[in-house]
């Protein structure tokens, strides 16, 4: 499919971070030189099943970290917990040195950790430009009183619009700015969602399956955007099933299975690790690790549905 992306980083921070990572041991929960996100003892159970049970995990800043694992490994749940969209049963975590445990999702986002969703959440009945403007932070006109007095926010609105147009141009969506977001293709929506997340200049972008449902023709440019993001100083953590993508653009890979972190390391090494292959594929050894799209979303749901069904049964 895709050729390896050339990632000759020019940003000295990225080079330094990568160099530092070379000296890090390849064991689960290992400490990183300059961690951005640190999670401790985070546990979330659904009906008696541990969906997430992460003892310790550090995410290095200024690099691209991939979070992989079989379906039902708890990757998305982990994302939800970190970003305040779900509450853990136990655990604490810090972002950029500040504790985020129990902090609501909007404040997590304000602190600089912005996420996207597995099923894109483009705001369909708003134009592409309005979608983008919504991403900007600290807008005066978002106060109910100030909203009535246009002069108070006219200047800021202009700045926000300029920034939005710049980003749209970068993501090649500038010709679509007055279309409804709902009329975009799946891949364009992914791009829009990513661009929208960048409106707030986040420190860490968390992408939940950025490649899922994206037209192969767009894959290349999406990968380019993600690496460009890192090179411009934003750290990236992403969940992905597309192993080619993981191989090509990530600097570090974390493997989860049954809610736990089971392996960590540079992409090549981790993906050749027999333990990972076993954990990842179970008995389906004949499947290509690089083509994971075989595993459909349904099976994730089915595993969880079963767990919930059992829990319900127990309750009766």
């Amino acid at each position: 499919m895709a050729e390896p992306i050339v990632t000759d980083a020019v940003n000295p921070d990225v080079v330094a971070a990568r160099d530092a990572l070379r000296g890090v041991a390849h064991t689960p929960g290992v400490a990183k030189p300059t961690p951005l996100l640190v999670a401790d003892g985070v546990r979330r159970t659904f009906g008696g099943v541990n969906a997430v049970d992460v003892e310790h995990l550090e995410v290095q800043s200024n690099v691209i970290t991939a979070l992989i694992g079989p379906n039902g490994a708890g990757k998305t749940t982990f994302f939800n917990l970190m970003t305040g969209f779900d509450r853990p049963d136990a655990g604490s975590w810090t972002f950029d040195g500040k504790s985020l445990a129990g902090v609501p999702a909007s404040r997590v986002s304000k602190s600089g950790m912005v996420r996207t969703f597995q099923l894109t959440k483009a705001l369909s009945r708003m134009t592409v430009l309005e979608n983008m403007r919504l991403g900007a932070r600290d807008q005066v006109g978002e106060g109910m009183g100030a909203a009535l007095l246009r002069p108070l926010w006219r200047k800021q609105e202009k700045e926000v619009t300029e920034k939005a147009r710049d980003l749209l141009a970068r993501f090649k969506l500038d010709t679509k700015e007055s279309d409804f977001a709902g009329s975009l293709s799946g891949g364009q929506r992914k791009l829009l969602e990513m661009a929208r997340a960048l409106m707030s200049d986040p420190t860490l972008v968390m992408l939940d399956e950025p490649m899922a449902g994206v037209n192969p023709a767009l894959t290349q440019s999406l990968l380019g955007h993600i690496t460009a993001l890192r090179d411009s100083g934003t750290s990236v953590l992403f969940v992905e099933h597309d192993m080619h993508m993981v191989r090509h653009i990530s600097d570090w890979v974390v493997v989860m299975a049954e809610g736990k972190v089971v392996a960590e390391g540079p992409p090549k090494e981790v993906m050749d690790d027999q333990a990972v292959i076993d954990a990842y594929l179970g008995s389906h050894h004949d499947t290509d690790l690089g083509d994971d799209s075989l595993l459909e979303e349904e099976s994730v749901i089915s595993a969880e549905a079963m767990a919930e069904l059992e829990a319900e049964e127990e309750a009766k």
């Binding site: 970003t83 969209f85 609501p104 999702a105 909007s106 404040r107 986002s109 304000k110 912005v114 996420r115 996207t116 969703f117 959440k121 483009a122 705001l123 369909s124 009945r125 708003m126 309005e130 403007r133 919504l134 991403g135 932070r137 807008q139 005066v140 006109g141 978002e142 106060g143 109910m144 100030a146 909203a147 009535l148 246009r150 926010w153 609105e157 969602e193 929208r196 997340a197 409106m199 707030s200």
Partner: peptide
């Protein structure tokens, strides 16, 4: 006046998908 303001924009965003708006740092 509200419909064309940033405040109205946030409301419309919430109508479409409040989780997305929350992820953008708005106190939904």
């Amino acid at each position: 006046l509200l419909l064309r303001s940033p405040w109205g924009r946030v409301l419309k965003g919430i109508r479409e998908d409040e989780d997305a708006v929350r992820a953008l740092g708005k106190n939904v």
